[in-house]
Computed example of a mutant assay.
Amino acid sequence: MLVFRIVHKRYADSLFASGLEGRWNSEGKKVLYTAESISLAYLETLAHRKGLGFNKDFKIMIIKIPDTVDFQIVTSSELTKHWRDFRNYSACQKIGDIWFENGEELGLKVPSAVVPENYNVVINTFHPDFKKVKLIDVLDFEPDERLEQIIKQYQS
């Protein structure tokens, strides 16, 4: 399985996990957030950056996860009604933290809050199979400036 990340170039040469809190992990849980497509990775990054600051310093990471590793899959129907609201991270973090602590599966496949019909893959960097995850390519990222301009119009 190929997954994708869009990151600043200083982080694009390794599978680095900061341990910062995210929707599916609490502080200190070192996971990598990836998307099942480049376009979803872009939308996720756009949402988190509020559409600002893209430039030629960003890269697309292409990551290979072996087909032999296990994933826990979470569907939208399993989640609370308002799981996508950024103020409701705790419900998703509880699921992600349990998955991380159990350590049974390398990946947690979760619906995207931006496009719930598509999936992100959260990767546990402490799982024994993490050594099988490979960064196979890094591409230049040059997004269409029109999307950033549209978002800037609606920000106060």
Rank of each mutant, 00 (worst) to 15 (best):
S76G: 13
V110K: 04
V69T: 14
K81S: 13
S112H: 06
S90I: 10
I98A: 09
E104I: 11
A113E: 11
F100I: 01
L106G: 07
S77A: 14
L108M: 03
F71L: 13
D70A: 14
N102K: 13
L108V: 05
K81G: 01
S112D: 09
G96M: 01
W83L: 10
I98K: 12
Q72V: 12
D70E: 15
P111T: 06
S90Y: 09
E104L: 11
R84K: 15
E101S: 11
A113K: 12
K109W: 05
R84L: 05
S76F: 03
P111R: 10
G107I: 03
E105V: 01
Y89V: 01
F100L: 01
F100Y: 14
R87D: 10
S76C: 12
K81Q: 13
S112V: 07
V115G: 08
R84N: 09
K109D: 03
R87N: 11
L106F: 03
V114G: 06
G103K: 04
L79A: 07
E101W: 01
V74Y: 10
D70S: 15
L108F: 03
R84V: 09
V74R: 10
E101P: 00
R84T: 12
K109N: 08
K94Y: 05
T80I: 15
S112G: 08
R87K: 12
V110M: 05
I95D: 01
R87M: 08
H82S: 13
Q93W: 02
N88H: 12
K109Y: 06
V114A: 07
N102A: 02
V69N: 08
D85M: 04
L79Y: 07
W83P: 03
L108Q: 02
F71R: 14
T75R: 15
F100H: 08
I95L: 10
S76R: 13
N102I: 00
L79Q: 03
I98D: 12
L79C: 05
K81Y: 12
A91T: 12
G96H: 00
Q72Y: 13
S76V: 14
E104D: 10
G96E: 01
I98W: 00
G103I: 01
N102F: 00
I73D: 13
V114L: 06
E105W: 01
G107D: 05
V69F: 04
L106Q: 09
H82I: 04
D70H: 11
D70P: 02
A91Y: 11
N88M: 09
V110T: 10
D85P: 06
S77N: 14
N102G: 00
I95H: 02
W99Q: 07
W99R: 06
F71C: 11
L106S: 05
L79K: 07
N102M: 03
S76E: 15
V115I: 15
Q72I: 11
